[in-house]
Computed example of a mutant assay.
Amino acid sequence: MRTIEFDNGNLIFLDQTKLPLEENYIATNDYERIALAIERLEIRGAPAIGVAAAYAIAVGLLSDQTESNFEKINRRLAMTRPTAVNLFWALDEMKKVYYANKNSKILLPLLFEKANEILQDDIKKCEAIAVNGNKIFYKKSNVLTHCNTGSLATAGNGTALNVIKKGFENGFVQHVFVDETRPLMQGSRLTAFELDKHGIPFTIITDSTAAFLMKQDKIDLVIVGADRIALNGDTANKIGTYNLAVLSNYHKLPFYVAAPTSSIDKNCSNGDEIKIELRDKAEITHIKNVQITKDNYNVYSPAFDVTPNNLITAIITEKDFHLPPYYFKNV
């Protein structure tokens, strides 16, 4: 299942806000529409955001390749999601190409070539992560995961969810427990959608059910993705991830993170330096535009939290199965 691709001059993406009840694909060559798609979470998942941003740069320069236009587009895209480091990594990759070739007659082909390279690179990284992630399984396991880290979050087959898929194919995954992932239900809407497509047995649970399952010995391991990893291994991921890491530590369960090396921020020494995106209060006060509580109530809605490195059993990238102590300066 491919949920983001470039074809016939358009970025084509599956609108994830409509899932699982409606599969609606959108095609556009408008960088502003792509920026809005990222902000609205029509395109989501750190690797997929990076791919989309790369193509947004290229299509945005189709009619105007001036430096002022490039910088305007770059600034607009950088505003969309502040925590996902893949966004800034992809923008930086496109910036290198632009400034090395801004006076060249083949600037546009080179930019599209780089965007294609970023997409293909993500596909390859997803597969390598799944191979390296095989090490987490030593018996037929019940796995708990949070948010969505599959094809919907990447250009390939996913990160943490791809590890689960490969584990199932190899006979190591018995059942997957899927946190609903409030407030936007990426687990119950998106991860469930993908697991169903692949025929993998799963059960949706509320985010607050995880501890009770662990207490009953119904969970063997937890694996999640990452939106930004600091050099020391501190990891930002969807809000609720830190809860799971603490619970896993208490119940003596392994807690794994799977992400591409493009999610490692080499300018960030530890989790305290990670900027956490705050979302609109309407995502809490409303569900699918249906109001469930009063608008005048105060709401605190961080999109992510940070899990300290000492709670992470291993970090799985396309390059290696990293064990603590983590030091990613040279990765």
Rank of each mutant, 00 (worst) to 15 (best):
N74R: 14
K18T: 14
H322W: 13
Y55C: 08
V222R: 03
K275D: 13
L323S: 12
D227Y: 07
E71Y: 06
V306D: 03
N267G: 14
H322E: 10
D30A: 00
R40P: 01
K140H: 10
Y55S: 07
N243Y: 12
V51E: 03
A54F: 06
I219D: 01
L144R: 03
K294S: 14
D272R: 12
L41A: 06
I219E: 04
K125C: 02
N101Y: 10
A100C: 00
N309K: 15
H175S: 04
F6P: 00
H322V: 11
L62N: 05
Q16C: 02
Y326H: 06
D220F: 05
E5F: 13
K275Q: 14
E169Q: 15
K95M: 03
V246M: 14
K165H: 15
L111P: 05
N157K: 14
G45F: 01
A245M: 05
A100E: 14
N132T: 11
T293M: 14
Y250Q: 13
G225K: 02
A128L: 15
Q186P: 02
A84M: 08
F193Y: 15
L184Q: 07
I316T: 11
I287N: 11
D30I: 00
D217M: 06
R228I: 10
S248G: 12
D179F: 04
R81S: 08
C126M: 02
K218S: 09
D272S: 14
T293L: 11
I57C: 05
G156V: 09
V51A: 03
D122P: 03
C126S: 10
A54T: 07
I315E: 10
E42I: 01
M214L: 13
H286C: 05
A236L: 06
D121L: 13
P20Y: 03
R81H: 12
A27Q: 08
T83D: 08
N24G: 00
A128W: 08
N142H: 11
L152D: 04
L190S: 00
I43D: 08
M79W: 06
H198K: 13
K102R: 13
S151G: 13
S141M: 12
N148A: 00
A160Q: 02
E127N: 15
Q174S: 14
Y138F: 14
E127V: 09
I200R: 05
L221M: 12
R33H: 13
V59K: 00
L278P: 00
H251P: 05
Q291T: 12
N24W: 08
A78G: 10
D92P: 01
L311A: 07
P183F: 07
G50E: 10
T66L: 07
Y256C: 11
N296E: 15
K102C: 08
D220T: 04
F168I: 02
L247M: 15
R279V: 07
Q174M: 05
E127F: 11
S141T: 09
S269A: 14
N298W: 08
H198W: 15
I315N: 06
I204T: 09
P201D: 11
S188A: 12
G158Q: 04
Y300N: 13
A130E: 10
K96A: 12
S63N: 15
N267P: 02
T80K: 02
L213S: 06
T203P: 04
M1H: 12
I219M: 05
C126L: 02
I57A: 04
S63Q: 15
T80S: 13
N134D: 12
S263G: 09
S301P: 00
V85T: 13
F13T: 00
